[in-house]
Design a binder for these strands. Structure first.
Length: 423
RNA sequence: GGAGAGGUGGCAGAGCGGUUUAAUGCGCCGGUCUUGAAAACCGGAGAGCCGCAAGGUUCCGGGGGUUCGAAUCCCUCCCUCUCCGCCA
C-alpha cells in the first residue's frame, strides 16, 4: 500500500508512475477523502479533550456531593458525546473508503525501471550458458514424462481436474530431490533459515502481501473456513512478521517449500499441455526482510541466489528486467529468470525476484528500528528459488538422450540416491 | 466436539466505574560510582493517528453496548490453557 502522506505531497509523481504502469486511479477523489478525514479527526479530538476534562470535573463534583451541579454538567457533556459519536462514525467511514482505494492502487515502479507499454519492452539483463545442440530428434517433455512414466496427467485429472498432475516413480522422486537440493543450497550456502509454514492462509495474510482484495479470482478459497490455499510461500512467510516490529538483525532471510495453488483465472486454454501451466505446483521460495537502505543491494544478491540453483544444474537461462507495464501489482522492481526449454522451444519463467519496497510492509504493518531506534517500515523482497514444473521441463528436455533416457545433473544425484539417469 | 479457567506494556503480574497520565518486579537503555565489570543508587524507555510546533488523541485479544466517564459492567466473536471425547 502506498503512503497516503506521500500521495498527498507528491500527487503528480504518483500519477505519472501509475500511468507508466498503465494503471488508472482516482487520486483527487482519494485526496478529497483524506482532507475530509483529517478535518473530522481534528474536530473529534478537540471535543474528546473537552469531554475528558469535563468528565474528570464531574468525578470531583460527585465526590464533593454537589449532585445538582454534576447533573447539569452531565447534560452538557452528553451533547458533546453525541457530536463525537457522529464524528467518529464519519472518520470510520472515511478510513474504510480510503483504505479500500489504497488497497487497489499498485506499487510505484522504482526510478530506473524501464518504462514500457507491455511485456515486449522487458529487457534482457544477462544470459548464462548457451543453447545445447542435439544430433537426434528431441522430444517435448510431455513425451518424455509419458515414456518414462514420470507423470500421470490423466489420473490427476480424474481425481482433481486438469492442471493437477500426479508425479509417479522417478518423477515423484525427482520432485522430492529438487526440493531438498534447493532448500539445502539456500540454507547451507546462502545463509537462509528454513521454515515450513501452513499451506493455507486467512484473508488478512492474503491482503498483507497484496493478493487480496484485487486478485481474489486467481486463488482457491475454502469458503467454509475462510481460508485460502497459498498461491506462493511468499504469503505465509512474509506475513509471519505482520503487525510486528522485527527486533532480529536484518536482513532476515527465510526460505520455504510449499505447494502453490492457482486458479489461473483468465489463462484457461493457454499452455494446456504438459507441465507448462498448472493449478498446483511445488516451489521453493526465498523471502528477505531488509533495512530500507539495503533493499536494492539485497535485491541483486537475491537474483544471484536464485540463479545459483540453475547454474549448479547446468541449465541455460536468461535474466529479464520487467518494464513498468509488466511488473507485478505489489512490486517496485522485478527480475524474471527464464530457462531455455528446447523441446517446446520456449523461454520458461521459473523465478520472479521482486523488490516490494515498503509496500507489503505497510499493508502488513511489518516494521523495524533504525539506528536511532525510530520505528520504520522494513522492505520486503522475495524470489522463487525456484518453481519446479518448468525447471523439470527444462531439465528433462535439455538432458534427454537418443536412447530415451534423461541424464541427471551431478548436483542432483546425491538426492536421487546416486541415480545417474532417468529411465 | 463437551466442561471449566483465562487473555493487561519485551516478559511476569496488580488493577475490577472517576488523581491509572496502567502499580510493582524482571529485562532493556543512559548516568553516578569503579582500573574494568558486577552490585547499589539516579534517570529514561511502548505503538498508531492529527498537528509546522506546542500539544492533543486513540490503544489493556477483536467487535458492539451501557455511562458524563470503561482495563474495570453487559453482549458477541476469536484465541490460549486444563480436563474429557475423537484422532495421524
Amino acid at each position: 500500500m502506498l503512503d497516503i502522506k506521500f500521495i498527498r505531497e507528491n500527487p503528480d509523481a504518483v500519477a505519472k508512475a501509475l500511468a507508466n504502469r498503465k494503471t488508472a486511479a482516482d487520486l483527487s477523489g482519494l485526496l478529497g477523502l483524506d482532507a475530509a478525514r483529517r478535518t473530522a479527526i481534528t474536530e473529534a479530538e478537540e471535543l474528546k479533550g473537552e469531554r475528558n476534562a469535563a468528565s474528570k470535573k464531574i468525578g470531583g463534583l460527585m465526590k464533593d456531593g454537589k449532585k445538582a451541579e454534576a447533573e447539569e454538567a452531565k447534560e452538557r457533556v452528553r451533547q458533546i458525546g453525541d457530536r463525537i459519536t457522529a464524528l467518529d462514525e464519519q472518520v470510520r467511514e472515511l478510513d474504510e473508503k480510503i483504505l479500500q482505494m489504497l488497497l487497489f492502487i499498485p506499487n510505484l515502479p522504482l526510478a530506473g525501471v524501464p518504462v514500457g507499454k507491455d511485456e515486449t519492452d522487458n529487457v534482457v539483463v544477462r544470459t548464462w550458458g548457451e543453447k545445447k545442440t542435439f544430433d537426434f530428434k528431441i522430444k517435448p517433455h510431455w513425451d518424455i514424462t509419458e515414456a518414462l512414466k514420470l507423470v500421470d496427467f490423466e489420473r490427476g485429472t480424474k481425481i482433481a481436474g486438469s492442471g493437477f498432475p500426479v508425479y509417479t516413480g522417478q518423477g515423484a522422486r525427482l520432485q522430492r530431490a529438487l526440493i531438498q537440493y534447493m532448500l539445502d543450497l539456500h540454507t547451507v550456502e546462502h545463509g537462509y533459515t528454513e521454515v515450513e509454514p501452513p499451506f493455507v492462509c486467512n484473508a488478512d495474510a492474503m491482503t498483507g502481501t497484496g493478493q487480496l482484495p484485487k486478485f481474489a479470482e486467481d486463488m482457491y478459497h475454502i469458503g467454509f473456513d475462510g481460508l485460502y490455499p497459498v498461491p506462493t510461500a511468499e504469503v505465509p512467510v512474509t506475513n509471519l512478521y505482520a503487525d510486528e516490529i522485527i527486533e532480529e538483525k536484518l536482513p532476515l532471510k527465510l526460505t520455504a517449500y510449499t505447494p502453490c495453488f492457482r486458479r489461473e483465472a483468465g489463462a484457461a486454454g493457454r499452455d494446456t499441455r504438459g507441465l507448462l501451466r498448472l493449478h498446483q505446483f511445488d516451489k521453493v521460495e526465498m523471502v528477505n526482510f531488509v533495512k530500507p537502505e539495503d533493499s536494492e543491494k539485497q535485491h541483486e544478491i537475491l537474483v544471484r541466489e536464485a540463479e545459483k540453483v540453475l547454474q549448479k544444474l547446468g541449465l541455460h537461462y536468461r535474466v529479464i528486467e520487467l518494464c513498468t507495464a509488466d511488473i507485478g501489482f505489489s512490486a517496485a522492481k522485478c527480475y524474471d529468470i527464464e530457462l531455455w526449454a528446447p523441446g517446446v522451444e520456449k523461454w520458461l519463467e521459473v523465478s520472479s525476484v521482486s523488490n516490494f519496497w515498503d509496500y507489503q510492509a505497510r499493508r502488513a504493518r511489518i516494521r523495524c528500528r533504525d539506528e536511532q531506534g525510530k520505528v520504520q517500515f522494513v522492505h520486503t523482497l522475495n524470489g522463487s528459488g525456484v518453481a519446479l514444473p518448468r525447471l523439470v521441463i527444462a531439465l528433462i528436455e535439455n538432458n534427454q538422450n537418443a536412447d530415451g533416457t534423461v541424464t541427471i545433473p551431478e548436483a542432483l544425484r546425491p538426492y536421487m540416491g546416486g541415480l545417474a539417469k532417468l529411465g
